[in-house]
């Protein structure tokens, strides 16, 4: 996990708390993500796992505690926050490709407007990335013309185009038809192999087993258990985790 010798964690959450009104969605979260690590966050719905993921690029603000990314506390707003976000890719459950732009434009927009990469260089890179996720032939189509699985792969290419230090995946396969889940997971497994730092909120236990370095189990806004995938799936330590696993792994 620290092949490059840099042992400072890429992300560190310290005593993070957040409420949605009366609901205490994150309770005293302490968590680190190392460089190159693939961290899978699982847990029942409403456990706060998506909020945790979204807090890491400040799409959700937090009430107290702090989040340190690459040695710096997350900026609160403005240009500094935009710069941070450009270094943290995000893949959403509902893809969120820009509906009025072509696939190619979706991938080049960030590099051109944020990184100020020249248009033709950004185009070439976009085509490489689309090739990598298997969508190059659809580059001039609009998002609505693609299947969900294809859209999500474009969303991954869009995140990769920014050369992020980390990519957050917020339930990337939950909105997909079953037959399209695998094509997205394959791309993600490829990324994990290439050493991308990933935080993945998912219900895909197969992916967790195959690609995760560590599994975090959340319930009621708390991190209940953290372990390697093998240990977690075969020998969960807490009742909450065993109960959750028994419900999802029985069939």
């Amino acid at each position: 996990m620290t092949e490059n010798g840099d042992v400072t964690p890429l992300v560190k959450l310290e005593h993070v708390d957040k409420h949605f009104g009366a609901l205490h969605v994150l309770r005293d979260i302490n968590l680190t993500v190392s460089r190159g690590e693939v961290l899978v966050v699982i847990g029942p719905s409403g456990s706060g796992k998506s909020t945790l993921c979204r807090a890491m690029n400040r799409l959700e603000t937090i009430d107290s505690g702090q989040i340190i990314f690459d040695g710096q506390p997350l900026p609160a707003e403005g240009k500094a926050l935009a710069r941070l976000r450009s270094e943290v890719g995000m893949v959403f459950q509902s893809f969120n490709l820009f509906a009025h732009k072509t696939i190619r434009e979706n991938v080049t927009l960030g590099p051109v407007k944020v990184r100020k990469v020249a248009k033709d260089a950004a185009d070439r890179r976009a085509m490489e990335l689309l090739e990598r996720v298997g969508i190059a032939a659809q580059a001039d189509k609009y998002p609505a013309q693609l299947s969900g699985g294809q859209q999500q792969r474009v969303a991954i290419a869009r995140a990769l185009a920014m050369d992020p230090k980390m990519i957050l995946f917020d339930e990337p396969t939950s909105a997909l038809d079953p037959e399209m889940v695998q094509e997205v997971l394959d791309v993600m497994v490829g990324l994990a192999r290439d050493g991308m730092t990933m935080v993945v909120v998912t219900h895909e236990m197969g992916f967790a087993r195959k690609a995760a370095n560590r599994v975090v189990f959340m319930a009621d806004g708390q991190i209940v258990e953290e372990n390697t995938p093998d240990e977690f799936f075969t020998n969960a330590q807490t009742d909450r985790a065993r109960d959750f696993l028994s419900k999802i792994l029985t069939h």
Partner: peptide, 21 residues
């Protein structure tokens, strides 16, 4: 949809860029 603005902010576009683009 809200997700359009979130995706835009997530790649580092500023509020003004998100609004205009």
């Amino acid at each position: 949809p809200m997700g359009q603005a979130e995706a835009s902010r997530a790649i580092g576009l500023t509020f003004f860029q998100t609004l205009t683009m």
